[in-house]
């Protein structure tokens, strides 16, 4: 990743894979700090700025790498995918912040709360759409196959986790988890899918 030939393709000389690992590590740290009670109150929410910021750095590095013409570039289709994902992630963050602010600071009606609560979910649906478009638009059959495998692995992990947790929750042996966390599990599953692709096919894939 620090190859001089590619040093201009990432951010601070690092490619998207490096920043993806940083996002993963910082997210795990924030979750651990919050879950163990090491940080309380608004601090965990403030700390999420770190993985979110790193996500955008990762997107930028990926966008630059996809545009490389020295052979490491993955093309216009992936640049579009990265741009779409960055846009929908930004929309998610903005609408989620708006929902939190309105819920705490403003006396909003149930109808307005419904509309505001719908927006972050729709923004995440936009990310799913972007991945679907990537599968449709990708002309390289091998890369497309890797994306499909990655998504299937993510789906298997998220659905399995949701099913098992659901039964445990109904038996009152584990705490309640809000349903939107299964989307988070799906995105974590993409990370696992990329590792499986790397092991079996020698490359991480496109997502």
């Amino acid at each position: 990743m620090t190859d001089p030939a590619n040093s201009s393709s990432g951010v601070l000389g690092r490619g998207p894979a490096f920043w993806a690992v940083m996002v993963f590590i910082s997210t795990a740290l924030v979750v651990t700090l919050a879950a163990t009670g090491a940080v309380e109150g608004p601090v965990p929410q403030l700390l999420t700025i770190v993985p979110v910021g790193l996500f955008f750095v990762m997107a930028r590095a990926g966008y630059k790498r996809a545009g490389q013409t020295d052979g490491s570039g993955k093309g216009e289709v992936q640049r579009r995918y990265i741009a779409r994902t960055a846009i929908f992630t930004s929309l998610y963050l903005a609408t989620f912040a708006l929902l939190m602010f309105a819920d705490r600071e403003l006396a909003i009606s149930k109808e307005v709360r419904f509309a505001l609560a719908l927006l972050p979910g729709l923004a995440i649906c936009g990310v799913f759409w972007a991945i679907g478009r990537l599968m449709i638009e990708e002309k390289d059959e091998f890369i497309r196959m890797l994306t499909v495998r990655q998504s299937l692995i993510a789906t298997a992990i998220a659905l399995s986790a949701a099913t098992v947790w659901g039964f445990l929750e109904s038996a009152d042996v584990v705490p309640h988890i809000d349903a939107f966390y299964w989307a988070v599990a799906w995105f974590a599953g993409l990370f696992v899918g990329a590792i499986v692709n790397r092991i079996q096919y020698g490359t991480w894939g496109a997502v």
């Binding site: 093309g75 390289d140 059959e141 091998f142 196959m145 490359t203």
Partner: peptide, 15 residues
């Protein structure tokens, strides 16, 4: 008009 990764995977018999 494919990626280098595709050629590598085909060449090595992985795909």
């Amino acid at each position: 008009e494919v990626s280098r990764q595709s050629v590598n995977a085909i060449e090595k018999g992985r795909y």
